[in-house]
Amino acid sequence: MTTRVMLVSPAAGEAQREVRFDDDGPLSEAGLRRVRAVAGSLPAADRVLVSPSVRCRDTAVELGLSARSAPELAGCAMGGWRGRTLDEVAGAEPAAVSAWLSDPDFDGHGGESLRRLCDRIGDWLTAAAREPGRVLAVVEPDVVRAAAVCALSVPAVAFWRLDVAPLTVTELSGRGGRWNLGLGRRLDRR
């Protein structure tokens, strides 16, 4: 029995343009235009899910998806850094930013460590694999990175070595506890 998981990264929001730890803001005007241009380009799925962030929900709506909210697919909780720019945090807490980028167990911002994020998403993948069919989920890029780390069974420090562009699809196909990974296909109207 094969499970196929398609993880769609959302269109860009203002937080990404400002290099800001997401404050759950809306899509940017450019992001809205881009997602509207590719609406209808995704195949049908047995289960359609969406991360609870505004940007993921707005992307799913603009793509024409009727998706169930999946809190278990939320992006990494950034605690006290939420809403601040990377430059702002790096200026005030340079050692903490360095630790965050190098230590997957760092949670000094008061939120979730990258290892906990990877464990949470790994648990979700394990549960998703119990049911055959296609799963489509609009999720934050950090969730896509965590899924790739888990699917490939690589150390959590590899998280930062994975780039996830807006409006790309990362595909996982799994059977027997093993996943194959297809990275970063751009959405386009065919």
Rank of each mutant, 00 (worst) to 15 (best):
V97G: 10
G111W: 10
A96N: 08
A92D: 13
G79Y: 11
P71I: 12
A77G: 13
P26F: 08
E29G: 07
L49Q: 01
G25L: 03
R84N: 02
L42V: 09
L42F: 11
S51Q: 05
C76E: 12
R47Y: 00
S98M: 14
V61Y: 05
M78W: 14
D103V: 12
G64S: 07
S66T: 14
L65W: 00
G110H: 14
G25N: 05
R57D: 01
V89E: 11
L42S: 09
G31V: 03
P52L: 03
V38N: 02
L32A: 10
A44K: 11
A30M: 07
G111F: 04
P104H: 14
E112N: 12
L27H: 01
R47E: 03
C76D: 02
G110T: 13
V38R: 03
V48C: 02
G79A: 10
S28P: 04
T59N: 03
G111S: 11
L49Y: 04
A70I: 01
W81P: 00
S41R: 08
A99Q: 12
G80V: 05
S51F: 01
L42W: 13
S66C: 09
P43G: 10
E72Y: 05
L42A: 06
A96P: 04
G75K: 03
H109M: 14
V54D: 05
S98R: 15
G108A: 08
V54A: 14
V61G: 02
G83D: 13
S28M: 03
R82H: 07
S102Q: 14
D87C: 08
E93S: 03
D105R: 15
L65E: 00
L42D: 04
V89K: 11
D58Q: 15
S28L: 06
A70K: 00
P104Q: 13
M78F: 14
V50L: 02
G111Q: 09
G108D: 12
M78H: 14
A95P: 01
V61T: 15
L65Q: 00
G31T: 04
S102W: 07
G91E: 13
S66W: 00
R68M: 06
D87N: 12
G91W: 09
R36G: 13
A95N: 13
P94V: 08
D105H: 15
P94A: 05
R68F: 02
R36K: 12
S53F: 04
R84E: 10
F106A: 11
P94F: 05
R36V: 08
A39C: 08
G83R: 07
D107F: 12
A39Y: 09
G40K: 09
A99V: 07
G64L: 06
E88K: 07
A74N: 04
W81T: 00
A92I: 03
E62K: 09
D105A: 15
L42Y: 06
L101D: 04
V97C: 13
G64R: 08
A39I: 11
D105N: 14
V61A: 14
G79V: 09
E93M: 07
R34P: 00
G108S: 10
A39H: 10
G64K: 05
A67F: 01
A37V: 05
P52A: 06
A45P: 00
